[in-house]
Simulated scan of single mutants.
Amino acid sequence: MLNDFWETAPPAYKYAVFGGMGLTALGIIIIVIGAVTSTPHLTFVGLPFIGVGLIAHMVSLGVRSRAVRKALKNADKRNSGR
């Protein structure tokens, strides 16, 4: 496995990573806008976005670990066949 993981990563991993980053960034922007405008309700609206973004990151870690385990299992099968 000499390739960079990002090149061989499954599309679900890429979507989960970018989705998590986007939702987290959106939540931070909403919280900053709420803090600057002194709107406490807007500040609390951004928290679920950050939470869902963090969950998406955790899902991407699971997808990545599953892909790595699958690749290692396939490599082990190839090496044991020799």
Rank of each mutant, 00 (worst) to 15 (best):
M1H: 10
M1T: 01
L2T: 11
N3H: 05
N3T: 08
N3S: 15
D4A: 14
F5A: 02
W6K: 09
E7K: 07
T8V: 13
T8K: 12
T8G: 04
A9K: 02
A9Y: 01
P10W: 08
P11N: 13
A12L: 13
Y13C: 04
K14W: 00
Y15E: 00
A16T: 05
V17M: 11
F18C: 06
G19P: 00
G20V: 01
M21K: 04
M21Y: 07
M21P: 00
G22V: 06
G22A: 14
G22K: 03
G22E: 00
L23A: 07
L23S: 05
T24R: 13
A25P: 01
L26M: 13
G27I: 07
G27R: 05
I29L: 14
I29G: 12
I30M: 10
I31W: 00
V32E: 04
V32F: 08
V32L: 09
V32C: 05
I33T: 03
I33R: 07
A35S: 11
T37V: 10
T37Y: 06
S38V: 08
T39Y: 13
T39C: 10
T39A: 15
P40S: 13
P40F: 11
P40A: 13
T43L: 12
T43V: 12
F44N: 08
F44Y: 05
G46S: 08
L47G: 11
L47C: 08
P48E: 01
P48H: 07
P48L: 01
F49V: 12
I50V: 15
I50G: 02
G51F: 03
G51K: 08
V52G: 02
G53R: 09
G53K: 08
G53C: 05
G53T: 04
G53F: 04
G53H: 05
G53V: 05
L54R: 04
L54G: 10
I55P: 00
H57Q: 11
H57G: 10
M58A: 15
V59H: 03
V59T: 07
S60K: 04
L61C: 11
L61V: 10
G62I: 10
V63P: 00
R64D: 01
S65M: 12
S65H: 06
S65Y: 02
R66K: 12
R66E: 05
V68A: 13
V68C: 09
K70Q: 15
A71I: 01
L72P: 00
L72W: 04
K73E: 14
K73F: 06
K73T: 15
N74K: 15
A75T: 03
A75D: 06
A75E: 08
A75I: 04
D76Q: 15
K77S: 11
K77Q: 11
R78G: 03
R78L: 06
N79R: 14
G81V: 10
G81H: 15
R82I: 02
R82N: 11
